[in-house]
Design a protein around this nucleic acid. Structure first.
Length: 136
DNA sequence: GCCAACGTTGGC
DNA sequence: GCCAACGTTGGC
């Protein structure tokens, strides 16, 4: 199993909405690195759900419930992909970007090293550590 | 609202 | 193939 981190602006699509709806098509990604990450995602892979712009924190866990397929919003003939996510659970407490930046064991996380990437792999130990921080 | 970081585009 | 210009993302 692979671990990931996915970003969403909460006023566009929040973790609460994912929990309410039960599933969500993750489309509209227009960055090759992020797209390649979507394509590498396997059924059951888990992803930290991060709220960007507002919140600035990991708020929950999602899982891949459908592997990549052509992005239905890619009307320009572009070679883009989408996946589907379902909710796993919310974290007991949010793990903020500030906290992650300040943590000595999380300095190599791509969230910090490449702030603009919206779909990124996360090492298992980092994933587990963030879950621990989120357990409260 | 500003700006840094990064990716993409296009001229040469 | 290089690099300047431009656009976008996202933190502050």
């Amino acid at each position: 199993m692979q671990y990931w981190l996915i970003k969403s602006e909460p006023f566009v699509y929040s973790f609460e909405e994912l929990q309410r709806e039960g599933r969500s098509v993750w489309d509209g990604v227009r960055n090759y690195q992020a797209r390649n990450n979507l394509r590498a995602m396997k059924l059951g892979d888990q992803a930290l759900f991060y709220h960007s712009n507002e919140g600035l924190a990991v708020v929950g866990i999602a899982k891949c419930i459908k592997e990549f397929f052509p992005d239905p919003t890619a009307t320009d003939g572009g070679d883009w992909s989408a996946v589907e996510f379902g909710p796993v659970r919310a974290l007991a407490r949010h793990v903020t970007l500030k906290e992650i930046k300040a943590h000595p064991d999380l300095q190599n996380i791509l969230l910090i090293r490449n702030g603009r990437l919206s779909v990124m792999p996360v090492e298992e130990k980092d994933f587990q550590l963030i879950l621990e921080l989120g357990a409260g």
